[in-house]
Each structure stands twice: as C-alpha cells, then as structure tokens.
Design a protein around this nucleic acid. Structure first.
Length: 700
DNA sequence: GAGCACTGC
C-alpha cells in the first residue's frame, strides 16, 4: 500500500478547523509512529524525510487538490521550497505536459534551489528540473516538469501567454518579502484564477502576512454554493502552517533606549565576547559608513586592550564590497577566534552565514523612498518592522540555540514597531510596472486589483513620464511600435527608449554598450588610500562630452586588451563588472535582432550618441546656475537644486547644460553619469515636453 | 572633493 496520500482518494486523517475569517486552517495529525525506517533509501531520501515539511506532505496535497489557493506559512529551514514542488510532481501535477512553477525573488535562489532539487531527483539540471532567470533559460520545453524562476520572469512570460496555460500549479515563494514583481504577480494571478479554475496557486509566506494574503485571494462567498455541486476547488484559501528547523533564539532587549546605536552595537559585541561561549556574531547596521566605523572601533579596541580582543575577527559585509573581501565572510572561523560580521540587510535575506550564534540588531535599515512630486528617490534610515526583527533574530538559530540582542526596548518592540514593512510598490517609481501591465492589456491601472495600492500621485507621475517618452498616447494606451517595443526590452524604460532612438541616429552599437554599462552597478573598483592613482586612471579614459562617452572609451580599451583582467587591475576597473557588460551587450544584440533593428555604429560621431541619450533622458536636463560659485545646477523640469557627483568626469568642469542618468540623494542631490548637451537638442527631442512644461510643470 | 539598503526584468 502506498504510504502517501494521492489526489482524489480519501482525505488524510487530520483535523480541519474553520477559522473566524472564512479561511480554512488545516492542522495535520501528529506523525504516525509506524513511519518508514529508512531501510533501502539513499541518504538524500533520508534527508528529505527528516525535513519538517515531510510530515505535512499529505496535507499539502490534499489542500492543493481542494482549494484554488493554498497559503503555506513556513519558517526558514522547513524544506518547503525544495520539497513541495517534488511532492506535487510525485502526485501527478506535471503529467500531460503540464509544468509546476516555483518563483523566487532572487536569481541566486532560483539557481541554487533548482540545482538542489535536480540532485535530489537524480536528474540533470535543465531536463526534468530547470530554471529561468533573465538572460538565462535552463529548461527543456516538453521535458521540464518543475521549473524555478524569478517572479519577474513569470510576469514577463505572461506577455506571450497571458493565462500561463502551461502551468498546472504556481508556487510563489517568499511572498512576504513583497517585492515589486511579487506584488504585481499576485494581482495578475488572482485575475488569471477567474479564467482558469484548474490553476492552483500556492503562496509561501511568513506568519504575519498570511491573513492579508488569504483575504486578498478570498473570492466572495456567493460562488461557494455552486462549488459544492460540481467538483471545482474551494475558492477560499487554505492556510497551512509548517514549523521551521531553526533552534530557539533567546531575545534580549535594552532596558533604556540607546542614543547611539553604533556605539551600543560595538559595546554589545565586546560584552558577548567577554561573557558568552564560542560562536560567531552577526551585527545588523544600516550602511557602509556605519559598518566601516564599527569595524574601526572594534579593531581599534583589539589593539588597545591586548590579546583577549585580538581573538576577534571583524569583517564588514555589504553588496558594494569587492568580491575577494566578500568571500572572507564564508571562510570558516579559525580555531580560537570569534568571527564578527558587521552587515547591512544583505545578511537578512540574500546571504546566509553558517555558525552564527549571536545577533546584534540595531533596529534600523536603509530603505528607498520615491517622491512622486519631485520624481526623486531618497535613501533613508528607517526603523525596521517586527517581521524584519524576527528574521534577523532567526539568523542566530540556524545551527545551534542562539541569542539575539536588540538595541531597542521590549516596550518599543511590542507597542511601536510596525508589524510589516511598507511594500516596495508603495515607495517606488512605477514606470516599469505600469508599462508591463499595459503590455498585458491592463489599461485601467487605478482599477487594478493591487494587494497594496500604490499612491495615485505615483501612478499619475508614471503615466506622465510614459506619455512624454511617447510610450503611451493620449488615451494612455501603448503606442505602436515604440510602446510595445519598450515593453519588450527588459531594461528601464528610459534606457529602452534611448536604445530605440539610437536607430534614428545610426548609433545603436554605441548606445547598447552604454546601456549595458549603465545596467551594472559600477565598472570602477574603489580602493581606499590610492585615490590619486585612481583619479589618474580615470583621466586616461575621460571624454570631454561626459561619462557615457568615457564608458565607450573604457569598453574599447577592454576589448583591445583582449578582455584582460590584468588590464582591468591596472586601470582600477572591475573585471567582473566588465565581463557582465560584455554579456549584457550580447543579449541586447540578440534582442535587437528579434525586434528587427539593425545594430549600426556611428564611428566617432559623439553628437549622434548624445542626441540618442537625450531621446530617453530629456526629462533629466539641468542648467548651471549662472552666478553659482559651487557648481549648483537646477533641473529644468522642477527647479530642483542638484550637483555633479565628484565621481563624474565632468566634476568641476561644470558645462552649462547637462543631462544625468540618475540622482543619489544624501546631503545634496548628486547627479551620477552626466553628459554635456546643447539645449537646442532638448526642444528638438521633446518639443511637447519643453514647450508645454517650462518653466514649472503642473502635473495633470 | 563625495560615497550608493537590496533586488529584479
């Protein structure tokens, strides 16, 4: 007799509890004592059975069979991501050419989970188990049964197949993170569900969010009676809770609020080191500045107080860190030493450190907020949510029971800390979002079924920008061909518009190089202490026109060197970033071919290149204030005070008119990646924008 | 003469 429950058979012996808000809470029975001894199973299979989710295998299959939507609340380490897709496949959900999809917010997670599942199933990655991320499709259509992909890719797949017909089940993992594309995906899936009653959705979410997810997917009761008659699935979402594999973490709070969390963090680290048994320490601070300062204080302390503190191995961790330094984090702690990793939010979700027994949580993180009125994004330090605080604490209990030291009071945690963070959708520029929805035929953006509605001001601003770029028309419909082509290019719409316009100026070759460089974080290596040499290296490539043309010089130099890492090292250029640039450029070449656009070079005609840039970025034009002694510019559109970033080749050159790629906002608004222009090109490129909107625009 | 939480298509 099969030890597993199969769809269609009698439901497993467990208790179903109707919860107060109409959702169905499913409480599985305790595991039976007569479970398999493990005899005859490979070690991989034994490992699979030890995962907490294994006990809930029957429950998962039962709920998925009977409910359109199932919400799985699971802590980290429950095994839900790797196991549930396999259970579904074993139960037949991938039969008849159907595919089981599982989405992740991050590319790295997609790749590693897919590899793990392929290994467990004993198949080659890219066959029965595959994955898709941007620019990388490792699937075999017709063969692949379980497919992992980023949620952004799945949204994009809807452009070719609006009802996602090839999937029988879509599992949205890490939905509690509420990324832009997760929110978009959830709204779209709810829409698809109405047209495809056969589709099953599994949402994996943290506890706090489960209720709001359930409410979102709960379709009104009037359809329930009808459901009982035929055998359509129950429209009410089911919630299943799966315990994690983490160890207990003891939480400590400060008794009085701290005035300086940086100092408090340093003091706490020293206290732990003095009083607590071995085990690494993970400290959460907000950004590079804080982290470098804390590292300095702790290493300084070590020298000052002698041997005891020299046992501390203090390491910074943030995404901007050079590759080699980041790798240090993962090397095992030497015997007799205690590793202290001082990190940004990157260690909260993206990276997992083994061996951490103590977490110090400052209670703050940096978040990006978009101001639709000024069209400027700001990075600000804000208090974290309870969900984040719990996630941070959980990092201490991965391999042994741990302790978490919160640098805020318990009262603050209980009474003031908000339960969840603000979803990205409500603090972002919506240009990309709206263009994708339009491409899917959703024109009533205000009426879209958002899980959390963005601000109307942000929607209006995005529509205004898209209209000025010629991507949508007066009726807010995508223009043809520009609008549809921009929707197809997986880049920022202003970059996409720049690429399409390059065709008119005969410089597509140059512009896709620039687009590729702008798509990577930074092509420079920043090394402290060698500023002079660094600046000299930069001058070797500097172009009078500005940063974008400088990128072309660097790219040419890189190719001439034979893509040499030595050459990069000598010139303070990030080799990995340059490899990525070459890769993205290759992809853009393919995309141009698909769109039927010939890739032509304008040779040395940099005026053509600058005009193409303006076609996408005319809204970012600025004028040098005439009597300004300190290089103050004002944006043409809204008279915002801005300055050229000191990293730009045009810093202190201060041309009268410039166009920037992006702003970084700290104490001032700094323009990064700037190019000098002739103002007549602006009215040439966007007469509608500048004639109607000078001097001060009034948003409609 | 300053500095960028983290993702993603």
């Amino acid at each position: 007799m099969s030890q597993f429950w199969r769809p269609g058979s009698e439901r497993p012996r467990t208790r179903l509890i109707d919860d107060d808000e109409g959702g169905v809470l499913f409480v599985p029975a305790p595991p039976s004592s007569s479970s398999s001894s493990g005899f005859g199973h490979s070690s991989l299979e034994r490992q699979r059975k030890r995962l907490p989710v294994y006990k809930h295998r029957d429950a998962v299959l039962y709920l998925v069979e009977h409910h359109s939507t199932t919400i799985v609340v699971g802590e980290t380490g429950s095994g839900k991501t790797t196991q549930i897709p396999q259970y579904l496949k074993e139960a037949g959900w991938a039969e008849g050419g159907r595919v089981i999809a599982c989405t992740q917010p991050r590319r790295l997670a997609v790749q590693s989970v897919a590899a793990r599942v392929a290994e467990e199933m004993g198949v080659k990655l890219g066959e029965e188990v595959g994955y898709t991320i941007r620019f990388e499709d490792v699937t075999n259509p017709g063969v692949t049964m379980i497919k992992f992909l980023t949620d952004g890719v799945l949204v994009r797949e809807m452009m070719d197949d609006p009802l996602l017909t090839k999937y029988s089940i879509i599992m949205v993992d890490e939905a509690h993170e509420r990324s832009l594309s997760t929110d978009m995906l959830l709204g779209l899936l709810k829409k698809i569900q109405r047209r495809r009653p056969d589709l099953r959705i599994i949402i994996s979410s943290a506890t706090i969010e489960a209720k709001s997810m359930s409410n979102f997917f709960n379709i009104r009761r009037k359809s329930l009676a009808q459901d009982a008659e035929d055998c359509a699935p129950n429209k009410q979402p089911a919630i299943l809770s799966v315990e994690g594999k983490g160890y207990a973490v003891e939480i400590h709070y400060v008794e009085e609020p701290v005035s300086d969390y940086l100092q408090a963090a340093v003091d706490t680290v020293l206290l732990i080191h003095e009083k607590e048994p071995p085990g690494d320490i993970l400290v959460f601070l907000t950004g590079q500045d804080d982290i470098d300062a804390a590292v300095k204080l702790l290493t300084g302390h070590g020298q000052q107080y002698g041997s005891h503190y020299s046992d501390l191995l203090v390491l910074p961790l943030y995404s901007g860190l050079p590759r080699g330094e980041q790798d240090l984090i993962f090397t095992p702690t030497p015997k007799g030493k205690r590793k202290v990793v001082i990190s940004t939010n990157i260690a909260e979700t993206s990276l997992t450190l083994e061996g951490v027994a103590y977490v110090v949580d400052s209670g703050f993180s940096k978040q990006r907020f978009y101001n639709p009125i000024s069209d400027i994004e700001n990075l600000v330090v804000v208090p974290i949510s309870k969900a984040s605080a719990r996630q941070r604490a959980g990092r201490a209990g991965r391999v042994q029971p741990g302790k978490c030291y919160r640098l805020y009071t318990e009262e603050y945690y209980l009474k003031e800390m908000s339960p969840e963070g603000i979803p990205e959708m409500q603090r972002s520029n919506l240009v990309s979002c709206i263009i994708q929805l339009k491409a899917l035929g959703i024109d009533n953006i205000l009426g879209f079924d958002w899980i959390a509605s963005p601000a109307p001001e942000a929607m209006i601003r995005a529509l205004e920008i898209l209209y000025s770029l010629g991507i949508i028309d007066e009726d807010a419909k995508l223009t043809s061909p520009t609008g549809f082509q921009v929707a197809e290019i997986p880049l920022d719409p202003m970059i996409s518009k720049m690429i399409l316009s390059a065709n008119d100026f005969g410089c597509t070759e140059e512009i896709i190089t620039i687009a590729a460089v702008l798509s990577v974080q930074s092509i420079w290596v920043s090394i402290r202490g060698v500023k002079k040499e660094f600046d000299e290296a930069k001058l070797r490539f500097a172009a009078a026109e500005g940063d974008h043309v400088t990128f072309l010089n660097i790219y040419r130099g890189f190719l001439q060197s034979g893509k040499s890492s030595q050459w990069c090292y000598k010139n303070f250029i990030n080799y990995h970033a340059m490899k990525k640039v070459v890769d993205i450029k290759e992809q853009l070449h393919n995309l141009m071919r698909r769109l039927g656009i010939a890739v032509k070079s304008c040779d040395r005609d940099m005026q053509a290149v600058r005009k193409a840039i303006i076609a996408g970025f005319f809204a970012h034009a600025c004028h040098l204030e005439e009597y300004s002694q300190n290089g103050m510019y004002k944006t043409i559109r809204s008279s915002q005070e801005v300055y050229i970033h000191p990293s730009s080749v045009l810093f202190r050159v201060n041309p009268k008119w410039v166009v920037y790629h992006s702003l970084v906002s700290t104490d001032k608004h700094y323009m990064r990646n700037v190019i000098a222009i002739d103002p007549s090109w602006l009215t040439e490129a966007a007469p509608h924008f500048y004639q109607l909107r000078q001097p001060n625009p009034i948003p409609y």
